[in-house]
Nucleic acid binder design. Structure first.
Lengths: 227, 227
DNA sequence: GTCTATAGTCGGATAGAC
DNA sequence: GTCTATCCGACTATAGAC
């Protein structure tokens, strides 16, 4: 491999491997300790490179942080694409949506979220990153809001509306969507606490079944009560 | 005022006012920026004292941080005492608990939580503090878990169990309690996001009604479905 | 009890050899 | 492209005057 990329874009004929190693280490460090808590030296050590390598590849610590946000969004989207895709297709068809089918899609979406966020240990790291940025918005807030929260809650709200037989979501559907999604936070950001409360050693297949059941009951209730 | 306190305990015949000012400023700073993100200089400036005053009154930055956790627990407990008191009294009576009354107490508890956490702007600060500590446990984790999460979820779980006609809570009730409480996080840690999603300028009386209604529906569903 | 001054450490970013 | 060496600023904590 003489030159990994023939400079397909202006930037980065640089070592993609080093870049990736830094990014992976940075996501973990920032997710656990935050922008201020994680030092470039710690990240460099974890990535197996020297400290100035971060500046060389990303320009600055802040720029690296923003790049981490982008990577998190990408990985999250990849994990949920199999469920969000069909849901978007259903809602975008223009025709009147069958409430029962909307309910099926909503269930699939929630199951995919459980798989991506609760079953995956890495997601607790992502969740830490995202939660910090929501509390104290910085350079990464817009990325996370525009690519994660806004489309995520809007999709859920539209599915809830469709399952209730409405053409478009209103305030009630958006509120319910927000709360439905926030239930997952108990097992991402609140992973440690929830494991202690439930006396779970770890969150394996059996625990996931229980979580899915509890969420499933909420979805039922959401739609059954209509409004 | 010659000597605010006659040294009732061994420690702190020191200025209680200065101590309080530092504590208030520290809670805000740590809540917004975390232990590493908030500097003693910033806190001192916000409290209107000089930087070494923090060390004088609290010993170290870490000790001040732990003291903030204690203060948050106290203030939270004070805000919810009017609802948690009757609930604890009901459950502690030893006799078989009337399911309908348990449901009433559960509603009161959730309303008190909404008032304390959602209606109160300060609570977003507390929530930031607590959320960081849950993600990356430090010296304050035990305080917050033992005095906040454990008793809070256990109380909710016992009320849910009683409302379902059970003597004691099981895994299902604890799971449901965790998720019910995590709904509030959408409006504490997720305050900014939720306001944007809902297109709310701020969270006033009308918005609180909507939030309470949505939570109330969940409480209904929780108990109606039994298990 | 509160202040100023400062010691000692660690952070991010840059310069320049290879 | 990757390394070592280093600058400079910001931080916490301590010493000592008042």
């Amino acid at each position: 491999m003489a030159q990994t990329e023939p400079a397909s874009r202006g930037a980065y004929a640089k070592s993609a491997d080093t870049r990736r190693a830094i990014l992976d280490a940075a996501i973990v460090a920032f997710g656990e300790s935050g922008l201020d808590g994680a030092s470039t030296r710690t990240i460099a050590a974890a990535a197996g490179v020297n400290q100035p390598a971060l500046n060389y590849h990303f320009g600055s610590k802040d720029a690296l942080y923003v790049e981490c946000a982008r990577a998190i969004v990408e990985r999250f989207a990849a994990g949920t694409a199999s469920a969000s895709g069909p849901a978007i297709a259903l809602l975008g068809s223009g025709e009147r949506v069958d409430p029962d089918l909307a309910l099926v899609r909503l269930r699939q979406l929630m199951d995919a979220l459980v798989d991506t966020l609760v079953a995956n240990e890495d997601a607790a790291i992502w969740a830490g990153f995202v939660a910090r940025e929501m509390n104290a918005p910085g350079d990464a807030f817009a990325i996370l809001y525009d690519s994660l929260w806004q489309p995520g809650t809007e999709l859920a709200a539209r599915l809830i509306a469709a399952a209730r037989g409405f053409a478009d979501p209103g305030d009630d559907e958006r509120l319910d969507a927000l709360m439905l999604i926030s239930n997952l936070i108990a097992f991402t950001n609140g992973r440690r606490v929830s494991k202690s409360i439930m006396k779970w050693q770890d969150i394996g297949p059996e625990q996931l079944v229980a979580v899915r059941r509890s969420i499933s009951r909420q979805v039922d209730a959401l739609v059954a009560q209509g409004n």
